[in-house]
Nucleic acid binder design. Sequence first.
DNA 1: CCCCCTCAGTATGGTCACACTACTGAGGCG
DNA 2: CGCCTCAGTAGTGTGACCATACTGAGGGGG
Lengths: 158, 158
Amino acid sequence: MLPRRYPWEQCSIASTLEIVGDRWTMLIIREAFFGTRRFEDFHRRLGIARTVLSDRLGRLVADGLLRKERYQDAPARDEYRLTDKGSDLWPALMALMWWGDRHATDGPPPVVVVHRGCGGTVDDRRVCTRCHAPLGPRDVLVSRGDPAAAAASTGPGR
Amino acid sequence: MLPRRYPWEQCSIASTLEIVGDRWTMLIIREAFFGTRRFEDFHRRLGIARTVLSDRLGRLVADGLLRKERYQDAPARDEYRLTDKGSDLWPALMALMWWGDRHATDGPPPVVVVHRGCGGTVDDRRVCTRCHAPLGPRDVLVSRGDPAAAAASTGPGR
DNA sequence: CCCCCTCAGTATGGTCACACTACTGAGGCG
DNA sequence: CGCCTCAGTAGTGTGACCATACTGAGGGGG
């Protein structure tokens, strides 16, 4: 979402969508929460065009949602990690996921978010269904598909 | 977001974005929560192209997030109202708004969501900051700009 | 030393979603 | 009779996004 598209809008929802409201940005952020950090991995997992990915990652770094971190010299290689600003999108992602589980997906949720060490799941207010603790991105494990595999997951990035 | 753009994705976030992930749909839903119901009003408030608005409203009705309701015959006029499925996007909108208030807006929040009859505001888990009641879209009043004007607002649609 | 591999992009050219403007069509108002 | 509102549809352009190919830095094998 390039140059302010809704300049007349006085609304934080519109302001947020100017940054993350295009077709790919939210999915890139989601991948980042799932632990993806490198260009090639984002490209593979999302199937996004390389040009668009390059542009979006650059924009997310410029906007301060991701930060580039050198993980190897010779050749220079950087990975992209969520900043605090980017991590704060977790509530929005959980809300979108909750809606999709209810209304856009048939059958059981394809991705399960589990309270690390407790085993409860995250409800629509990001509170553990078992121990009722309020949860943040670092309190949970994410499992693609199989809930039982959650315990073996590497958990979210950051 | 027309034909499934992420068919390989097994993720409710992607499924949700296929429905509400284009440039305008979320803002249309937001307007609906703010009480907008008619074509001409959506057009005026959003500044969206009429063709796109027509397409998006039709798609939202087809997807079951809005429902068309006759409010006048001769000439036939319908208004668009949120269904339960559409209303369930409230958590996602509140999450986007919360992020925008924190990270994408300078100064005080341009739109304030206030607990009706209590006066507290909504926190990031949609709980009242004053009386700690969990809040839904029909428990709140929305004020564009001035918090004090919230009590005089017509509140969210539905 | 040359070939092929990985990683992280940039370049190129095509397509489709979105934008702007204008028009239609049904009825109301003066 | 002409002008207004409301709810769209039609026509035409532009730019965001797409797929594919190429670059460039370095590693490893023969």
